[in-house]
């Protein structure tokens, strides 16, 4: 096991370095942030001074070298726009995004697993078919458009919920959270639902096919034949069978939830790091873009590792030497 973890960590470092190189080259090629930053009345001399202040007067490989050496010390550079460390800016927005993603994931799992189970246990009933049809529609709904429609219905037409923003937050262990107050929930529920829809459809389908597969396994048939109650069969055997795929999806898709929150955050003006990324791209705030992407990659790697470990715990048969995905 330690060897397994070590190897994964080495892989992770590789991926991070390659990623940083690609992104650095990519973001570098977009353009110079100087035109946006410097005062309109600036002379050539002012421009040169500002370029030197930001390290932009050096050739790209020197800039990358500087970045890399500092990154090893945990410093991902200062934002051009804000003048403070990029990583700090992102971490300040991280709780908002994570809260949104976690709540969305809870909605997806909380609704998806029961619905999928039911559809799997009763595949040929009207209910089962409706759930499956619904999940296909869920797959097909463009997230951003659903966001607009949610705002149109619940905020503009009915006036029940706010159209965006995070509303007041309550601190818990130093983290500002929305879930602790009614007002916070009123702001959270629309964006979280919006973000959850796609994953909800995914989990319904996964759970359903897992359930159906399990029901056909010999031991389940046997248990049923032996007269075990449906509740117990489902509770013990079926759930166990679908747990692994669901855990995998929750893990794997969590990263993509965080990534796709860019869209939801920009619609609902949720002050998370996705919004920060979009703004930083339009303002060419290179250090922030870079730091954000590296952080996402890191998050992915960590999640993958955790998923693999959970896997190993849930099912001893999963090879520890294999690639594990």
């Amino acid at each position: 096991m330690p060897f397994f973890i070590l190897r994964r960590c080495l892989q992770a470092v590789n991926v991070l370095v390659v990623m940083s190189l690609l992104v650095f080259a990519g973001v570098y090629a977009i353009g110079s942030p100087l035109d946006l930053l410097v005062d309109p009345q600036a002379t050539t001399e002012d421009l040169a001074r500002a370029a030197a202040a930001l390290g932009l007067d050096q050739p790209v490989w020197v800039q990358y070298g500087r970045f890399l050496s500092r990154a090893l010390g945990g410093d991902l550079g200062d934002s051009f726009i804000h003048g403070s460390p990029a990583i700090g800016l992102i971490l300040a927005r991280l709780p908002a995004t994570l809260e949104l993603a976690v709540v969305a994931m809870l909605i997806a799992v909380g609704l998806g697993v029961p619905l999928g189970l039911w559809a799997g246990l009763h595949p040929d009933t009207v209910g089962g078919r409706t759930i499956m049809a619904g999940s296909i529609v869920g797959f097909s709904l463009p997230t951003f458009w659903v966001g607009l429609m949610l705002i149109m219905v619940f905020s503009v037409q009915l006036g029940w919920l706010p159209a965006g923003g995070r509303g007041p937050t309550t601190e818990l262990f130093g983290l500002p959270l929305s879930v602790l107050s009614v007002e916070g929930w009123r702001h959270l529920i629309l964006p979280a639902t919006n973000l959850a829809l796609f994953k909800l459809a995914l989990i319904i389908r996964l759970t359903r096919s897992g359930t159906r597969e399990a029901l056909q396994q010999d031991y389940v048939r046997f248990a049923r034949a032996k007269g075990l109650s449906t509740g117990r069969v489902v509770g013990v055997h079926v759930l166990k069978n679908i747990l692994i795929p669901v855990v995998t999806v929750v893990g794997m898709e969590f990263g993509s939830l965080v990534a796709f929150s860019v869209v939801t955050e920009s619609i609902f003006a949720w002050p998370g790091m996705g919004k920060l990324l979009l703004d930083s791209i339009t303002q060419l705030d290179r250090p922030v873009v870079l730091a954000y992407l590296l952080l996402i990659v890191l998050l992915y790697i960590v999640i993958n590792l955790v998923v693999d470990l959970v896997y190993a715990l849930l099912d001893p048969r999963v090879g520890r030497g294999g690639s594990g995905r």
Partner: peptide, 8 residues
């Protein structure tokens, strides 16, 4: 490539 969200 797959570790990275396609939208990004």
């Amino acid at each position: 490539q797959l570790a990275f969200p396609s939208i990004l």
